[in-house]
Write a protein that binds this DNA or RNA. Structure first.
Lengths: 80, 80, 80, 80
DNA sequence: TCAGATAAAATCGCGC
DNA sequence: GCGCGATTTTATCTGA
């Protein structure tokens, strides 16, 4: 009985932590939207901006992956 | 020329702001995942947690919409 | 060779089925628009109608989710 | 008073008609999903299928638009 | 006709 | 690896 109520309190704490984090996430998503709106207001094309950001992210990911592969090679060599 | 470089700089600034915000968003998403993992580690069922959180979110959304429709009703009455 | 042409024919059949279904879907969407237009023509506020419909849909969805979480609870208890 | 109740009944009728149509629309959307699933089950790539369908739709739209422009030209000539 | 809101489709990411 | 839920992107619609 006591165990259950403690557990319930713990579960509630987890859930509220997640909800707070999701709220923060939503706030940031709104900030992003605002920046896009501001950029649009100064004449930039949002669709193009999204493409640029997407390409840059792909570049980063690609570079990171290449580094990881390099690491793998190096550690494999170390084990020879 | 000067105009273009200024504009380009401005666009770059917008893009970097967005990229920073997206990075923050990703960090929070990771935090959320960690909380789920921790809750799972203490024995809670993640699927049920998600459902609970989803239901609570629906409650909030519904309440918000009900307030909005009340506003709509009132403004509609005001126009009679 | 024979295999390819059969497969191509099969793919074509899938695609045409989907296109026909999408056409039906579009027709129904048009019907819905017409009903809204007709309601508007008899003096109803479309925005309010949409809100009402949205709230009713939320009710249904929430009820469905509540049943699902009940299932989850029961199955979780069954595993104790 | 009588007017209001009649109106309410009428509004309810409109809403229920729309809800029925939306239900049909959802059913067709489900059918489409099923066809995709079936195609996937027989080895087709859903992403590619979507591309094909999208391209074919664009073709149709383009052709329709060209026909409309042709109509415009012809009627403009008729008015000369 | 266009912006802003709404809804739909496509994509991504997770848990199982 | 697949289904499913969330997110993001695209298309549609309405009101100014």
């Amino acid at each position: 009985m006591s165990t259950n109520s403690v557990d319930a309190g713990h579960l509630r704490a987890f859930i509220e932590r997640i909800e707070r984090l999701e709220e923060e996430k939503r706030a940031i998503a709104d900030d992003i939207k605002e920046v896009y709106a501001e950029a649009k207001g100064t004449g930039y094309d949002v669709k193009i901006m999204r493409k640029i950001i997407s390409l840059r992210r792909q570049d980063r990911d690609k570079r990171k992956e290449e580094e990881e592969i390099l690491e793998l090679y190096l550690s494999a060599l170390g084990e020879v």
